[in-house]
Design a protein around this nucleic acid. Structure first.
Length: 469
RNA sequence: GGCCCGUUCGUCUAGUGGUUAGGACUCCAGGUUUUCAUCCUGGCAACAGGAGUUCGAUUCUCCUACGGGCUACCA
């Protein structure tokens, strides 16, 4: 039934939550698939029974959902495919492309410690008799692939032609002594069984690729196309990790970033649309994405730029969507207020908040009278006792307003300012301080309008009682 | 140790055998905004080094340096 020619997969290992590098790999796979009208699959690489945890799988899936990277069914778990792998081992053993290795872990390790980095080939040419003997003695064994002479060449969609001499490729282990298959082996079989056409993954897999190609050939499978993505780096230019304090994707959600912001920034890390546009919606990313524009060089993670990108998306974001997103990280936000009130607050503030958490912080005074006043703001806006007299005047001016709308408020205060030959700043700063506790925020007349007359008058009253402090 | 990959402003990047090497983030200085954010203007700031090819190299080739990755019975 599948008419699409392109199939890709993201294959995380559930040994930790989804990190930024994984998210970027997932995103690029997804974008490529969508751009090509292909399919995007997910495979959980849980062959490491010791380190894999279900809770990590759950976290990874949740993070991908949040990012909006929907995957096609079925979802593949490698741990459920051990029987499939076994069949291939039997065949490969039959043709001699795989052989049993009876070397112990310790022996191999000590050889490495002495500077012999490659497998010495101890068991490569054991006679049938020799094998039988060892089996009878009950010696544990692994399966290794027999790498033929020659060299392997492939064309990386991002890095170009890559050639490796087989002298550099070890007879690596494909099945451990406990019978479990290793990564390079399972990845090849799964990618084949899942009909993966393009393997898009991190650059750290470049040197695995020849090994896998050799495996494809031994198994008689078609070799897919490979594309390796450059790493995401920390400020020390080393691969980004927890050591850099790099958080999992989940925490970006908690910090109030919109998923499209993270996706947009992640896309810009190692890719560009070929134009000077930087703020792109998911649809635009899908439309413009291609592997040709992907960079070879690793890219340093820059939280500041993410923050800027986030601010751009906040400005453009749909108001209802922002409300929904805020409620997701803070279900109590604006509880008890009319939706229309909340909507108007969002429209006022989304221009100046760069994340949802900033937004929540900046919206506080729309729901609660200030409990304290910004110190630096007081210095400028309410420096001494003289201000109180003026504020009392203003309070009564406001009190006279019968139809409480921002135009009327503005007009009344301007009249007052003109009559007393005062700059508007002298009037607005103390009022802003009184109602919001600080000197930043949207148009002050609009704030008063939203707060309502009673609240405004009360907050000014409170300020008159406690200020200057 | 070996192999593979990479190298343009601090960071993300554009770019061409001849360009004042462009943009974005950050930072700084102005302007607009009665505040803040936005917005506008301006500024700082890069082709790792050395050979070679060439009339001419940031661009092509080689070497060096530096950085990264892999070299596991991890993925």
């Amino acid at each position: 039934m599948s008419h699409s020619s392109v199939s890709v997969r993201f294959a995380p290992s559930p040994t930790g939550e989804l990190h930024l590098g994984g998210a970027r790999t997932a995103l690029f796979n997804w974008l490529f698939a969508k751009n090509q009208g292909g399919q995007f699959f997910l495979r959980i690489e849980d062959t490491d029974l010791v380190r894999s945890k279900d809770e990590y799988t759950d976290q990874i899936l949740a993070a991908l959902k949040w990012l909006g990277l929907k995957w096609d069914e079925p979802l593949v778990y490698q741990s459920k495919r051990f029987d499939d792998y076994k069949v291939h081992i039997t065949n490969l053993l039959g043709t001699g492309q795989v052989y049993r290795c009876f070397c112990s872990k310790d022996d191999l390790q000590s050889a490495r410690d002495e500077g012999h980095y490659q497998y010495p080939g101890t068991c490569r040419n054991l006679t049938d008799e020799g094998v039988k003997q060892r089996l009878n003695q009950g010696i544990g064994f692994t399966y290794r692939i027999r790498i033929p002479d020659g060299e392997t060449h492939y064309e990386d969609l991002i890095y170009g032609p890559i050639t490796v001499n087989h002298g550099e490729v070890d007879d690596f282990i494909v099945v451990r002594s406990d019978g479990s298959p290793t990564y390079n082996f399972t990845a090849v079989i799964d990618d084949h069984d899942m009909n993966i056409t393009h393997v898009i993954r991190g650059e750290d897999h470049i040197s695995n690729t020849p090994k896998q190609i050799l495996l494809y050939q031994a198994l008689g499978f078609d070799v897919p196309t490979f594309a390796h993505l450059p790493m995401i780096l920390g400020h020390d230019k080393k691969r980004l990790s927890k050591r850099h304090g790099a958080p999992g994707v989940q925490s970006f959600q908690d910090e109030g970033y919109l998923p499209e912001s993270l996706n947009n920034y992640l896309a810009l890390l190692g890719w560009n649309p070929g134009t000077e546009e930087e703020i792109l919606s998911m649809d635009e990313l899908v439309q413009k994405f291609n592997l040709v524009q992907v960079q070879k060089k690793g890219a340093v993670w820059d939280e500041k730029k993410l923050h800027w990108v986030s601010g751009q998306h906040m400005m453009q974001a749909n108001t209802d969507f922002i409300l929904e997103s805020i409620r997701r990280i803070n279900p109590n936000w604006g509880k008890g207020s009319d939706i229309s009130y909340l909507i108007s607050i969002i429209e006022m503030l989304k221009q100046r908040a760069k994340s949802l958490t900033e937004f929540i912080a900046q919206s506080h005074y729309f729901f609660h009278a200030p409990e304290s006043y910004d110190t630096a703001g007081l210095k400028r806006g309410w420096p001494d006792k003289n201000v109180n007299n003026r504020v009392e005047d203003i309070q009564s001016v406001l009190n006279e307003i019968s139809i409480w709308r921002k135009e009327n408020i503005e007009k009344a205060l301007k009249v007052y300012a003109a009559a007393h030959e005062l700059g508007m700043g002298k009037i607005i700063m103390p009022i802003r301080l009184a109602v919001s506790g600080g000197l930043t925020g949207p148009n002050v007349f609009e704030i008063l309008d939203h707060l309502g007359k009673e609240d405004t008058i009360n907050r000014i009253e409170t300020a008159l009682n406690v200020l200057p402090s």
